[in-house]
């Protein structure tokens, strides 16, 4: 059994508790315009040239090799619940392939974290939930039409999945909303209202907000894709949103990714 990934990052300090290994799975069905990992979107392996050398984004790795790679840092996981984080792309989309690995990691007591946009059929999420210790949930554009147009996200599915997580056994303190903020989309007044509503509804989830940045420019170039440059978000706007969120959830914080 193999999964398709773009990268394995050891010593990740920003992807969950403790010291982690982050696995970037390839393939995502959304189209976030600010996506900073455009090489993770397509399900296909993409070739490009860099300094006149042929290189490619993405490769298939056997579960055995992937597990070996994850366990390499086992010694570093013991302090403070370190472990593995599956990110992407959308990791839920390869959950069936991943499941045997998750089972094995679970039996070894490795802390498992997912970073997901929740844009995946609920039955896939259900598989994942059995193994997940920590989860980061993207919250971006929540208006039904906009979500479809901008992100290609089915917002009903999103809410349905959210409910699934909420009613699962997952410890609420291990569930975190991650909200990317930019002037062009997510910071719009209406959207912020929707976001606040959602946060209110799931008030015991953690909240982290951050500015999106123009990191993907060179990657887009390699992929021959257009890249839209976003206007810089000023700190004032960021703090304003934070304050509003904190009225509902006092633990909300700003992070820099």
């Amino acid at each position: 059994m193999t999964v398709r990934i773009t990268n394995i990052q050891h010593f990740s300090l920003d992807d969950g508790p403790g010291i982690r290994t982050t696995v970037f799975l390839k393939g995502c069905n959304l189209t976030c315009p600010w996506c900073c990992n455009p090489e993770n979107i397509s399900f296909e392996i993409e070739n490009y040239t860099h300094n006149s050398q042929n290189e490619s984004f993405g490769y298939d790795i056997s579960l055995k090799d992937l597990e070996k790679e994850i366990l390499k840092d086992e010694a570093f996981y013991v302090e403070n619940n370190g472990g593995v984080t599956f990110s992407g792309g959308e990791p839920l989309l390869q959950i069936r392939e991943l499941e045997p690995l998750l089972k094995s990691l679970k039996s070894k007591n490795i802390n498992i974290c997912f970073e997901t946009s929740l844009s995946a059929p609920s039955n896939l999420l259900e598989i994942a939930i059995q193994y997940i210790d920590e989860i980061f949930i993207d919250m971006k554009v929540l208006d039904k039409k906009e979500a479809k147009n901008v992100l290609n996200l089915d917002i009903d599915l999103y809410y349905e999945n959210l409910e699934l997580i909420n009613s699962s056994n997952l410890d609420k303190k291990n569930i975190t909303f991650r909200i990317p903020l930019n002037n062009e989309y997510t910071l719009k007044e209406e959207n912020i209202k929707d976001i606040l509503n959602c946060i209110e509804k799931y008030a015991d989830f953690n909240v982290e907000i951050f500015k999106t940045h123009n990191l993907a420019e060179s990657k887009c170039k390699s992929l021959n894709q257009e890249f839209t440059i976003f206007s810089p978000v000023d700190d004032e706007a960021l703090n304003e949103v934070l304050e509003k969120i904190q009225e509902l959830n006092s633990n909300a914080k700003i992070i820099s990714l």
């Binding site: 300090l13 403790g18 570093f76 013991v78 403070n80």
Partner: peptide, 10 residues
């Protein structure tokens, strides 16, 4: 915090 953990594990 995490860097301190890192030192202990190391």
């Amino acid at each position: 915090d995490k860097f301190t953990d890192f030192i202990y594990s190391s």
